[in-house]
C-alpha cells in the first residue's frame, strides 16, 4: 500500500474523522460516513475540503 504523507489527510466535516486523499484528487469520499466532497490543494502536500460534491 502506498504510504501517503499525513498532510494529504482531510477532516470530514460531517463525522469529524480524518481520512486520506489521493494526491491531486479533486473529489473524495469519507470512508467513515460516506460524505462526498470536492477537494482543493493549498499546497502540493496538503488537501482541504472545497465543498460538497
Amino acid at each position: 500500500m502506498n504510504k501517503l504523507s499525513p498532510q494529504s489527510e482531510v477532516r470530514c466535516l460531517n463525522c469529524l474523522k480524518r481520512f486520506t486523499v489521493s494526491p491531486k484528487a479533486e473529489t473524495a469520499v469519507c470512508p467513515h460516513c460516506n460524505t462526498k466532497y470536492r477537494i482543493s490543494w493549498p499546497t502540493p502536500n496538503q488537501a482541504k475540503v472545497r465543498g460538497l460534491a
Partner: peptide, 14 residues
C-alpha cells in the same frame, strides 16, 4: 498553510 494560500476565506469552505 491553507491561510497562506487563500486567506481567511478558507473558513468559508468549512
Amino acid at each position: 498553510k491553507a491561510q497562506s494560500r487563500w486567506g481567511t476565506m478558507i473558513i468559508y469552505s468549512n
